[in-house]
Design a protein around this nucleic acid. Structure first.
Lengths: 190, 190
DNA sequence: ACCCTGATGTCAGCGACTGCCATCAGTACG
DNA sequence: CGTACTGATGGCAGTCGCTGACATCAGGGT
């Protein structure tokens, strides 16, 4: 007989998402989440650094996908490398995950604190991409710009992908947004 | 005789920056900041929504400068409007302010929580710019992209402006970064 | 003289988070 | 077979961020 039920971390994540959806982030205490998962508050904080973090696990793997895309890109043009990274990251968001992503995003959009955390994660992603690009010999400032632009494209594309009525897969949306960025920035300068 | 010394808010801000610089953000309690300013903890929270916010006042005025730039831009090309907004915002950061900005940024860069708040502010700025662009008839997705790109340019440019050894005024740095973005995104596509 | 306003103080209390120590099933090792 | 060790958990006390409710009291207006 096992001493502890396995998957404590996953139970906590599921309990948290369910409670947040039902009562909101602020209306849910950590003790309540832990109790729902059959654990105690103290144990929650052994699995997650803080209350918000419970919604942002897996971000590391997501970041790794981006970096893999950067490292395996055949090209050497910065924006082309970024495009490859975006392409690679879409593996993290298959169509089956769209409705789950919607639910999670609804919770995040309802709380400024969670938005802060999301932004910090995306900022970390941009930094990681910047480093990856520099390792491939891209000029430092150009690397930062390309990475920031790539993250911007991802943000806009992801929001579009999640929007009501949108049917295209993420990869296709991202390609469209990137194309739009190119034409925007290239537009007639006055 | 006055009942309270005037400028409570400013005294709190000065006390906070000084303490944060000396002991770090986490190593400073709100009660300590308030005491330094000759006030109580409760009064601190009447002036600022939370402990972090004491470093981010004035952001509203900053945002207004951006919006004014957008509304007064003579152009109708999205990125040209964004360029005008960037130009207008530089008024908020004259050269005399560079060393103060450096000190404040050093505090922020040392604490993830403060970075989160900064990102949230910049995100709010991007949203405001997006709305401003849409009010000028720019296509919604294009507006979001242009705004995000504009904020990215500002971030990269501001970091450059603040860097050790940099001497050019912010406006000049921003123009250079924007030019670099154009050539990046326009680069040969493979 | 009177009341009203507004910035402040005081106090009690909740919830997030941490440090420290205890518990005890399973595992490794002598 | 017993003993020591490991690792996930619980319990508890304590700090700090933050809030609501109520009191205070100088100055301004009536």
């Amino acid at each position: 007989m096992v001493r502890w039920k396995p998957g404590a971390r996953e139970r906590l994540q599921a309990a948290a998402l369910e409670r947040f959806g039902a009562q909101g982030f602020d209306g849910t205490t950590v003790a309540e989440i832990a109790a729902t998962a059959g654990l105690t508050e103290r144990t929650f904080f052994r699995h997650f650094a803080d209350k918000r973090e419970v919604l942002f696990s897996g971000q590391d793997e997501f970041e790794r996908l981006f970096l893999a895309g950067i490292e395996e890109a055949g090209d050497s043009d910065p924006m082309a490398i970024v495009a490859a990274a975006l392409e690679g990251a879409t593996a993290f968001f298959p169509d089956e995950r769209r409705s789950w992503s919607r639910a999670r995003q609804r919770v995040i959009d309802a709380d400024p604190g969670l938005q802060e955390r999301e932004l910090l994660k995306l900022s970390g992603l941009a930094t990681a991409m910047t480093d990856g690009l520099r390792r491939r010999g891209v000029d430092p400032t150009a690397a930062a710009l390309a990475a920031e632009s790539g993250v911007a494209v991802f943000r806009v594309g992801f929001a579009t992908w999640i929007a009501e009525g949108e049917e295209r897969p993420l990869a296709e949306v991202l390609r469209a947004v990137l194309t739009q960025l190119r034409s925007l920035v290239t537009a007639p300068q006055v």
